[in-house]
Computed example of a mutant assay.
Amino acid sequence: MKESIYLKSIDEGYVDSFLSGNIFMKNVKYFHEVEDGDIGGVADETENMAFRIFKEQEAPVWHFPGISRPLIGESISFSNALTDKVSICCFAKIPFGQYELLPNNVLKLSHQYYEDLREFRKRPCVLLEEKDMEKIIYSILRQLSPNQRLFHEPVEYYDCSNITIERNKAAEYGDPFAYTKYKLKEKYRHEHEYRLAVNTKEPEDVTFSLENKVGKKVSIVEQSH
């Protein structure tokens, strides 16, 4: 398959639930209190969640059968209290050419990705194809309330010591998520993160249930040099 794949690192006790189609999203407030290394996460004060801001009539729309929902919002740092009402689900995105899927659910990663995901590989991993990710996004969109939004995109990176922080113009639209743009620091680039996120009424974890099973559990090995 000439496409990217997605890997989800999951505690052993939750693998079967995820494969059955239960997509768990952790509240961002939890990550405020996590030190780097405790769960293989990132203790970075500039890490962000982004919701794209557009005027309602200009908003790009993610189309699925029977659903047209604009993606609206803008970037906001995880350190800001507004993100307490955002829940996320994270994956590692592996581009075509950096992996090979073998029989018996053995996944070979290139040397670069195998090393980059060293911490990630300490827990069981589930592989998702592009069609699996589309299925997840479609299902989440169907279950959102009218005032909820879905964000899905690779996490971008920059070195905060060498960039001009720009003020977002979206505040004029009166959106509560309008804030200064932030991205992860360059040193966290190795995580290759792809993130799904939704806003919630209260600081809470959420689970979206799919109608069908999704993904497969894989064993990860390194490609020969």
Rank of each mutant, 00 (worst) to 15 (best):
I94V: 08
F64A: 13
Q143W: 06
N168M: 10
Q112Y: 07
K213E: 14
V155E: 01
S9G: 03
K29E: 15
R121A: 01
S145L: 15
A59P: 03
E130H: 10
A59V: 11
E134K: 12
Y6T: 03
Q98D: 09
L144Q: 03
K131V: 14
K93F: 00
D116S: 07
H63Q: 14
G40K: 02
V106W: 02
A43W: 04
G21N: 11
L210G: 05
K85A: 10
N147H: 09
N105M: 04
K169A: 11
A59K: 06
E119P: 05
L210V: 06
K131P: 01
F54I: 02
E56Q: 15
I136Y: 01
S139F: 05
F24Y: 08
I53S: 13
R142T: 06
K131W: 07
G13K: 10
G174I: 08
T46Q: 13
S224W: 10
R167C: 08
D175K: 09
Q98R: 09
M1Y: 12
F54A: 11
I140Y: 00
N199K: 11
A43M: 14
I23W: 00
E211H: 15
N168G: 14
I23R: 01
I39N: 07
R121Y: 02
I140N: 00
S161W: 09
K93A: 05
G97F: 02
F51D: 01
E129T: 08
G40F: 07
M133I: 12
N212T: 11
Y99Q: 06
